[in-house]
Simulated scan of single mutants.
Amino acid sequence: MLLVDTQQVAAPDRVAAVNAALTAGCVASRIVHKDPAGDVHATMHLWTIGPCKLVTAHATGLRQTRTPKHLRGDDQPEMLALAMQSRGLAQYDKSGHQQLVRTGDLMINDLTSPYDVNWPDDGGSSAFNVTYDLLGVPVDLARRAAPLLHTSPLYSLVQHHLGTLIRQAPVLSEDPGAPALAAATVELLRALLVSAAADDRLARPVRADTQLTRIMAYARQHLTDPGLTPARLAAVHGLSERSLYLLLRDAGISLEQWIITQRLEGARRDLAAEGKRHRTIAAIARTWGFTDPSYFTRRFQRAYGARPKDFRQAARSPD
C-alpha cells in the first residue's frame, strides 16, 4: 500500500503529507525536516506480511524523535522493528547509545522507549515490525542485543533474508505463503537477538525452534551454488545427514525436490526477464546450479510444459 508519494502532492502540502505517512507507517513521533521550505520529497509503502508489517521509506533529510510524551499517548501494542538502511547514512541515538547506520546495515529499534533517528541527507530505510507478544523475547533482551547485532554469526543470514524480503515485498505480501514467511522471519529475528545478547537461558530453545528455518534460509541463500548438497547443509548446521533428513521429513520437505524446484523457478524468471536477454540459456542454467544442459531442459519441460528455448520465445512475444 502506498502511504505517500510527494510527486502526487502539491509542494506546500508535502511536509504535512510526509509527517502523516511516517506516523501511520511507524509510530507517533516528532518529525523535523532538514529543509522544510525546500524540495521535500518522499516515497513510503506499507506491506502486510502475515501478522507483521514491512515499511519502506525514501526521503530527503529529516529527524524523527520519539519522546516519553509520545509513548504515554500511544495505545499500540509493544513492538520492535528490524530495520535495514537502504540508502545514505542514519544517525541513531537510543538511551545514550549512539550508532552510525550505513547502507545495508541492520538496526534494532525497540519502539517501547524513546529514540532519535537523523537522516542528514537523502536516505532510505525499511523496517520489519513485529509485536513483542509474537516475537516471544523480553524487552530487556532486545535492548541488550541492539548494539551487538554485528557480533552475531547470524547477522549476514538475517541481513540477506531481510534484503530479499524488502526487494520482493509487493509479490511476497500477496503470496499464499505470506503468513509462513512472516513466522520464519520472526524466528530468524528471535535467533539473532538471542545470539547477539548471548543469552544462554534462551539460546537452546531458540536454536531448536529456528533450526529448520535457518537451514532453509541457508539453502535459499546458496541456491545458485552447484555444491549445495545435503551433506553440506548438514555439516554447516552441525547435524548428521540422517538427522537432517529426519528434520525435513517431519516438516514434509523433500530436500532434493525443493532445491530443484527453487532453481527451476529462478531460471524461469531469468529466461522471462527482459534485462537478461543477452544471456544464453546454458549460462542461465549454470547460474542456477544446472551443470548439465540436457538435464536442465528435461526438468524445465517437465515443470513448465515447454522447453527453455520455447518458453523464452513465448515470453518475448507480444500478447
Rank of each mutant, 00 (worst) to 15 (best):
L165T: 13
H97I: 15
G104K: 05
Y245W: 10
G177R: 14
R312L: 06
V130C: 09
H58E: 13
T287F: 02
A251H: 08
D116R: 14
R312S: 11
R102C: 10
P120G: 02
V9Y: 05
T297E: 13
Y218M: 00
D75Q: 07
S29K: 09
D13Y: 07
A145V: 00
L100H: 03
W258V: 08
L134S: 07
D110S: 05
L189N: 14
S126T: 08
R87E: 15
I260G: 02
L247N: 13
V15S: 13
E241C: 10
L188P: 07
Q98S: 11
Y155A: 05
T67F: 00
A127N: 01
D199Y: 01
P308H: 07
V15Q: 13
T112G: 03
I253F: 01
R316N: 12
Q64R: 14
D35E: 12
A16G: 04
P36T: 12
T60W: 01
A16H: 05
A146M: 00
T297Q: 09
L89D: 05
D270I: 01
D116E: 12
D39S: 05
D292T: 02
V137R: 08
H160N: 14
L247D: 03
H278R: 08
A17F: 05
D121S: 13
L223P: 02
A16T: 08
S195H: 05
E241N: 09
E78M: 08
A191M: 09
T291Y: 01
G266E: 03
A142S: 13
T112P: 00
N109W: 08
W288V: 06
Q98L: 07
T280H: 10
H150T: 13
D175F: 05
R286S: 12
L181I: 15
L106D: 00
A234T: 01
E241Y: 00
A273C: 06
P51C: 11
I31T: 11
I215R: 02
T297M: 04
L54V: 09
D13V: 00
D93V: 04
Q85P: 00
S125E: 14
P153A: 10
A146F: 03
R102D: 10
I215L: 14
H161F: 14
A90I: 12
D292A: 09
R201E: 11
D140K: 11
D140T: 13
L89Y: 09
L71T: 01
P77K: 01
A24D: 12
L181Y: 10
D310W: 11
P120A: 00
S317E: 15
Q159V: 04
V27R: 04
L154A: 06
D133G: 07
W258K: 08
D270M: 12
